[in-house]
Structure formats: C-alpha cells, structure tokens
Design a binder for these strands. Structure first.
Lengths: 186, 186
DNA sequence: TACGTTACTGAACACTGTGTTCTGTAACAG
DNA sequence: CTGTTACAGAACACAGTGTTCAGTAACGTA
C-alpha cells in the first residue's frame, strides 16, 4: 500500500501502468503466457523503460505482491495464540476470495512457485513458532513439531488451492470450520 | 515397463538415449533448465531426430513417467479398504525415497506441474472412491466427502514434498505412521 | 520562469532457444 | 539383395529476451 514517496511523477505513472497491464493480462491469459512484449504493448511503454525499472517479468510480479507477507502477518495476528486453533485461516480464505481472479491466473504457472514459496515460508515460520511455544508449555504430541508444522502449513495451502480450483464451492467461514475439524488431531 | 515391441532397433536405441540424457540432465541442473539442445547434445542425436519422436521436452518427460499411474494403482491396491487408514501411503513414501533424485529435480519446475497433476488426479479419485463407499456404509462425518478427499490428497502430497525438500529426515515407515496420526480426525 | 537533471521513446542489435524442412547416407527387416 | 525407414546435419524462420544509445520531453527546484 504505502509506497515510498517516489518523487518523480513519471516514474509513478509508468510503474502503475506496468502493474495494471500485468494484472489485466494475467487474468486474460494466465501469468505464464504473458510476455514482456505483451506488457509493454498494453502499458504503452517503451521497451527500455520496462528494463529500467524491473529486471524481469517475475521481478514485476514480486514487487506487486511484496506487501503480501506484511498483510499476512497482520491477518494472522502477531501474538501467536496459546490456546484454540493453531491457524486462524479465515483471513486467508477471505483474502483469496476477494482476489481470486489474480490467484487463479497464477495457478499452475511458474510465477506462483515464487509467490507460494514466499507465503509458504512465512506461514510455516508462524506455525512453527506457535507449536514450539505450546510444546514448552507442556502440550505433548506424538508427532514432532517440525512434521506437524509442515503438515499444517502444507495442508492449509493445499486445501486453499483445492478450493480455488473448484471456484470456491463453500464460503470462507465454512472452509475455516472444516479445516479446524480436519486438523483436530494435529 | 512393457513397451510395445518397437520393431526397429534404431528407434529403440534413440528413444533410450534421449531418456537417459534427460534423466542425467534433470539430476544435474533441474528439469526447467534443461533445453532440447542439451538433450540432443548429451544423447548425441540429430535435432530433427528428436522432433521426429517427441513434440516437445514435456512430451519426452510424459512418456517417461507414463506408467506412473499404473504403478500407483498397484501400490495403493485396487480394492479400497473399508476399514483402517484411508490411504496406505507407505508405498508412496518408499517410491519417492527410491527415486528421490529425479523427483527433487522436478521440484519447483514447470514439469512437475503436469506430473503432479497426474498423480494428484489419480490419488484424488482413489480417495474419493473410498470415502464415498464408506459414507454409504454408514460412516458419518461432519465434513463433506469432497472436502475430505481434497484435504487428504492435498495434505499427503504436501507432506511428501516437505519431506523431499528436507532430504527425507524420517524413514518412510515413520512418515506413514505420522500421516495417519495427523489425519486421524479426517 | 529558467535551469540542470532525470525519465522516456524508439530503433537497432546480439543472443538463446524453438520447431521445420531438406538432402544424402546408413541401418534395418524380410 | 532390395525396398523401406530412420538418422545426421545444416539451413532456415521465428519468438522472446535483454542491452545500448541518441534524441526528446517532463520533471523538481531555485
């Protein structure tokens, strides 16, 4: 949201146009099939201008979703809960629902690999923290913390993708409830 | 395993060399970074010869793992069990362990997308069958079958990838046990 | 408003990789 | 032995990437 001032108006305009162009093209034909040429045509921006701002197409995508991690931290809450569900995933499902066109355009693409790595890593760290804290508080479990963390993180994201692939046949609230029920023994 | 006769000896040799070359290159530099040029150089095969047999690089990969689904069905057992664990995942973890070099070379690549779609779809169908059969047999569960199937399939594959990414820190037997424990409420 | 600075355009260029086509040659099955 | 088929190798058109550079326009500041 809050970009740095970016003194020059021209720079702001150019970056905005490139972002909007990528956005539209992603939804139209999927991230993978969008070329740099497409982007600069759509944005009506010179080739050299693109490369003056971004090294690659992936780079542009990254800058677009840079603040995703911050959003996520805010959504998950910075103070890991000691009781109740390990992950409050309602915010995740809601966010996916709101931006589902963009996220669907990344599915199966090379781009999502980087994005979901980012999300995955952040989520994994969060879950691990909670589980470790609970573990020292006396919460015994037959399965080691690292496996549980990997499992919870992975299955949440897998379920999220399942949900998106099928065009969200349940509400975010339902998905949240069901995820909690399914992972009750984890 | 059992290819069709393939009358001409030259054809067999060429295909075999291409397969071996892809195999070696995948392990060396990862599927994504392997080019058709690399493959034909390594295989010492003419460019036109490659395209006489395969349309693309992905095509060659697909033909290589065509029999994966059959293997999987055999491993999972054709008769879905009515009691006990929904998925016997020991065969999966064992198979991954045996071929981990190949599988690791596909991680994060575009190639794996197709491969894991294949595996995912097959596994999902298998799990759905079992759950549906158990459901009519009176096995009540608060979460709908489609969500449970998506969850189980997705989390198994997610856990498998977690395990491969970390160079298999537990034995296949341990992974199997832990997966059963974690999904006890699903 | 005038100034020096900075960003943008547009075209040219080298480069990598893909996929096709063709001719002559060698290996093949029967 | 003979007709058929696969192969090598080179040439080609094509698409996309990323760089460079000279000329031009917009910018922030004083």
């Amino acid at each position: 949201m809050a970009e740095q001032p970016e003194t020059d108006r021209r720079v702001r305009k150019t970056k905005q146009r490139l972002n909007e162009a990528l956005n539209a093209l992603m939804v139209e034909k999927g991230y993978d099939k969008v070329t740099v040429q497409d982007i600069i045509n759509r944005a009506d921006v010179g080739r050299s201008t693109f490369y003056a701002h971004y090294e690659t197409k992936d780079n542009l995508l990254m800058s677009k979703i840079e603040h995703l991690k911050e959003d996520m931290h805010l959504a998950l809450g910075d103070a890991p809960a000691l009781t109740g569900p390990v992950i409050r995933c309602l915010p995740l499902f809601s966010h996916l629902s709101e931006n589902h066109l963009i996220f669907k355009s990344m599915i199966g693409s090379h781009g999502i690999a980087k994005v979901s790595e980012l999300v995955h890593a952040g989520l994994l760290q969060h879950v691990t923290e909670i589980l470790e804290r609970r573990s020292v508080e006396g919460d015994r479990h037959e399965v080691p913390v690292d496996v549980r963390a990997g499992f919870l993180t992975g299955s949440l994201l897998a379920l999220a993708q399942w949900w998106l692939d099928r065009d969200m046949p349940y509400s975010p609230e339902q998905m949240d409830e069901m995820f909690q029920a399914l992972t009750a023994s984890a």
